[in-house]
Design a protein around this nucleic acid. Structure first.
Lengths: 164, 164
DNA sequence: GCCAATTACTTGAAACCTAAACAATTTCGA
DNA sequence: TCGAAATTGTTTAGGTTTCAAGTAATTGGC
């Protein structure tokens, strides 16, 4: 099948080992940090990471969010959010009500208790993250931000291209 | 409580916003790519990501691995591996036997079928990854590798420090 | 040789997660 | 205005995941 190595009109198995190694390293970093945060959250506040993440989204939206918004922001499935919200309403951290203008829509927001509790956790959480990244110089951080932004765009583009 | 802003012998709430934003971006990238890989694996080969990951570990170890090895490498809990292996043995992808020298130890390896199937998936998987990262230049890739290596060390150190 | 500590793995409960099918509601074109 | 299409959220089934507690086997100090 290899007929023309000049014009590249053939299917040579190119070497993508570097990209693969990069992906594995990216995954390792994330898993490592995520696991550490997860275990500290449980140990210190007896809360799970998904709950913390959901509350973090809501803390940034004083007027509340719809379940779809949350689902998109957190990049998790609809059904997942339903269950997560269910448990957080149950525990008194979230308030949930049907939208006045669209009866399909559920608007959720943090309760007073939920917000206070989250703020306490968030403050400590931020120091954990700073500590986990503490060997990086400010320049490293800037450079990583830049390269990850580029990565994000690249991945989104590729995912988008497949979607159609 | 703030008495001495010169010697820094006080607890000022420092700003770690940049590290936090970096972490969120890192998480976004990983989630994005992982979700894409997950959905392509399902669509193309009807296999889940955890199964693919486990098989990938075993493909690199022709003589097999113990469950503990797998658990450490994949950074998941022991109990998780037990169930995962269970299902892969059931489906004929894995072979599992008790070690001859230590009857607590289970050694697992890919079956012939399992290996063949994995190799097919892996080849395609590699092109997906290359595509997802395709907007990065070789220099970007090198630079990311370097910075992520540094990040990994930093995080490991911080996690280690807490562990004792 | 004995027994306490460690190691390897399994089990069980609860939570998390996805994909797919579904019901309710809204939107919008003809 | 009517009805098809799209949107929002729930439900269901099947996996994945953690943590904690438990069992079995080995190791090492005495």
């Amino acid at each position: 099948m290899i007929l023309d190595s000049e014009t590249k009109a053939v299917e040579l198995p190119e070497d993508h080992g570097n990209e693969l190694r990069l992906w594995l390293r990216l995954l390792t970093c994330t898993t490592l940090i995520e696991g550490e945060v997860r275990s500290r959250l449980r140990e210190r506040f007896d809360v799970t990471l998904p709950r913390f993440d959901l509350m973090a989204q809501l803390d940034k939206a004083p007027d509340g969010m719809t379940l779809s918004d949350v689902s998109k922001r957190m990049m998790v499935s609809n059904g997942n959010v339903t269950g997560l919200v269910e448990r957080l309403v149950e525990s008194g951290h979230l308030d949930r009500r049907t939208s006045g203008t669209d009866r399909r829509v559920q608007v959720i927001r943090l309760t007073k208790t939920g917000r206070a509790e989250f703020r306490k956790m968030a403050a400590e959480h931020e120091t954990w993250i700073a500590d986990l990244f503490s060997d990086l110089t400010p320049k490293d951080v800037r450079e990583l931000m830049r390269l990850l932004a580029k990565t994000k765009l690249s991945a989104r583009k590729s995912a988008q291209a497949r979607g159609l």
